[in-house]
Write a protein that binds this DNA or RNA. Structure first.
Lengths: 192, 192
DNA sequence: GCTCATAAAGCAAATATTTTGCGTTTGTGT
DNA sequence: ACACAAACGCAAAATATTTGCTTTATGAGC
């Protein structure tokens, strides 16, 4: 059961995929995760269960597929004029999103997927986002750490706390991660 | 289906729990995750499937329960004489463990669990371990960052990379995380 | 030690789900 | 337009899960 992306993008396949995704989203809004079932989704989407099983394999992969979509950044990150501000603004809204009930659920669903490709996609969203903020900072003439320093210093602690120690995933701590990352990279740069 | 810990620790319950865990471990060694089933485990453990369903709810929770066990640190971390060395030694063996096939599977199984208590338990293992290394360093008269700095600086990036970007979970990067964490905390301390 | 109340397990019937084989529909390339 | 194959629908078969009831065995109180 290989996970295919956009198989036969035109026509029926696409329609089915959209109908199923839509059905999942609608049902997720009114149903607890434990009594969400494939047959139920199939009926709502006007599709046979076997279609879902053939295409996604099982419920976990299906909901992961839907949730990873939800993670895709919708708009460009706001420009506050400084890298610190941009990181803080982005982080705050990300934290808010991910500590909300549906956000937590989406995060869990993605983590529950057996194939790592889903998580890698989330990673690439963050990577690309950090890259945007960094380029923006450089264009302003600001100093900016490398993308991997930003990920290790800001994204990783934030994600780690969201997953393992939710109560530490706070705006206050975010401020600390950002400050430490920037000053440490700055200090280190002058050393070299 | 509340997750209970050590219900009626003595006697039959304990025996059943152990038999089931054992069955899961044995089957995991020879079976791919996708064709591991509850009835199969039940048979091997000499137990009725309904017993497993009543106690763990479903397969995902059961394997998560087994895997979180596997994560519990078995021995005290080695003492290399310096905090840097201790962190590096611990990190290297942890990385090795978690990049192995069974390690990856255990990590996934824990992440797939719906209840966050499992992940919190892993968190507490790391927290306690970092605390041990820190106290050890202080006893030597070394400087040592706080536990949460160690977690944010070393554990979080490592875990993040293991989950989201496996190829960056390397011993080389580990060295960098450790160095940055120690020097940044040290520098920051002198500032205050 | 013995008894009692009860949590947990066993058993089997009832449900619900997942899988599979096969025929049909429908995009896609020529 | 035609042919090919991927994807879907349908329904039967195979599995897995839930549930009601019975039985067993632990732990508490005497």
């Amino acid at each position: 059961m290989p996970i295919k992306e956009a198989v036969r993008p035109g026509g029926r396949s696409a329609r089915v995929q959209e109908a199923v995704h839509q059905a999942v989203r609608e049902l997720q809004a009114v149903t607890s995760r434990d009594d969400l079932t494939v047959p139920q989704i199939a009926e709502r989407a006007g599709v046979t269960p076997s279609t879902i099983y053939r295409r996604w394999g099982n419920l976990a992969e299906l909901v992961a597929d839907v949730s990873v979509e939800r993670m895709r950044p919708d708009a460009d990150p706001v420009d506050t004029g400084t890298l610190t501000g941009d990181l803080q603004a982005w982080g705050e809204q990300y934290l808010e999103e991910m500590t909300s009930v549906p956000g937590q659920r989406a995060l869990n669903d993605v983590m529950a997927s057996a194939d790592c490709e889903r998580r890698e996609r989330c990673y690439r969203y963050s990577e690309s986002l950090m890259n945007t903020l960094r380029e923006r900072a450089l264009a302003r003439g600001e100093f900016a750490p490398s993308v991997s320093q930003l990920i290790d210093g800001v994204v990783a602690p934030m994600t780690y706390r969201l997953l393992y120690d939710r109560e530490s995933a706070t705006v206050d701590n975010l401020r600390g991660w950002i400050a430490r990352t920037l000053s440490s990279a700055h200090f280190r740069q002058r050393q070299d």
